[in-house]
């Protein structure tokens, strides 16, 4: 809470970004306390990791680390809007069910079925994964599409302007000259990828799943690009194949749904995939999580490559 307050006052962009990262980490801790381990995992990876990196990348692209505070207007109107909204919310919480109580509608109505029957209906211990990938699998499908959309957006916004000349140039990474970093870094990449795979397939039992795995996998490749130069990494992972792979992730998820349609079930009804409903659910969840992982990893790469690729252009434009 104090971090948030400081952010609102600070004019130093770098400091605010780091503080936002800390804020995310703190909320991840809070999520663990609230028993939401999956969410904590994601928040730590996304809020503290990805978004901080992106913010920093943007500031370095822009080269402006301080905010020029306009002296003329003091945002009284903003304060009023905020106070009104805030008091409305406080007013709204007056009748909210008591925190942590078992008898609230939230705990009583829909949730018990997930907790009591998902073990039999889907057969995997992590209820969050069951709900995520099966009961509310369509939301997760939508989420994958959102990621895909964002990747597409970043690609269209930042991905064009590269000339042939620049494409073939081998920009040496900042870290390349440091031998120790390079050796240790390359040692790290395989375990990170392995860990990503573990997270991917362990999602049924513990916290984890396609999204987190995708992020971790992308990190491994990003590390590679930091060590060996963006150009080199981009030669391995061609632009076109990356965005097609992102699309393939969405298609894999949707394809599972279509197959279940063809087999006589509803869209995303994994039970009909195999003769045994529970193992059908297993295979379905496995496949869609794979789709999510693929899309997320590739979109992260698209975003990272395009942000840092932009930096190279700007650098060259100046020199």
């Amino acid at each position: 809470m104090i971090t948030a307050f400081v952010i609102s006052r600070s004019t130093d962009l770098l400091a605010s970004i780091m503080l936002t990262g800390i804020f995310s980490l703190l909320s991840a801790v809070f999520f663990v306390l609230m028993d939401a381990v999956d969410v904590a995992f994601t928040e730590a990876a996304v809020g503290a990791g990805i978004s901080t990196i992106l913010m920093l990348a943007t500031t370095s692209l822009i080269g402006q680390h301080y905010e020029r505070r306009p002296t003329r207007h003091i945002p009284v109107y903003a304060l009023i809007v905020v106070v009104v909204t805030g008091s409305l919310l406080v007013y709204g919480t007056m009748d909210m069910p008591v925190f942590g109580n078992v008898d609230t509608p939230v705990q009583q109505h829909v949730a018990p079925r997930y907790l009591n029957q998902s073990g039999d209906e889907i057969g995997i211990p992590n209820v969050v994964t069951s709900v995520l990938a099966s009961y509310r699998g369509f939301d997760t499908f939508g989420e994958t599409v959102v990621i895909f959309t964002a990747g597409l957006g970043v690609l269209t916004l930042l991905g064009f302007r590269r000339t042939e000349h620049q494409k073939n140039k081998n920009v040496i990474a900042a870290m390349y000259p440091h031998k120790i970093l390079r050796v240790i870094g390359s040692l790290l990449i395989p375990p990170i990828m392995l860990f990503a795979l573990y997270v991917q397939f362990h999602g049924d039992f513990g916290p984890g799943g396609g999204f987190q795995a995708g992020v971790i996998f992308a990190v491994a490749i990003i590390l590679h690009s930091m060590l060996f130069g963006l150009a080199k990494t981009r030669r391995i992972f061609k632009d076109r194949s990356i965005y097609l792979a992102a699309g393939a992730g969405v298609l894999l998820y949707g394809g599972v749904g279509i197959v279940s349609m063809l087999k006589g079930g509803d869209f995303l009804d994994y039970s009909v995939l195999l003769s045994n409903a529970v193992s059908g659910q297993h295979i379905g969840i496995l496949l869609v999580e794979l789709g999510v992982g693929l899309t997320v990893a590739t979109v992260m790469l698209i975003i990272y490559f395009n942000f840092s690729g932009r930096a190279d252009h700007q650098h060259e434009d100046k020199t």
Partner: peptide
């Protein structure tokens, strides 16, 4: 157990949030 449904919703929402931020930064 704690209720898994909000966790699922928020997983989705976090992802949507980062997607928005990434696009915004671009």
């Amino acid at each position: 157990y704690s209720n898994p449904l909000p966790h699922v919703l928020i997983l989705t929402a976090i992802v949507v949030g980062i997607a928005t931020v990434a696009l915004g930064l671009a």
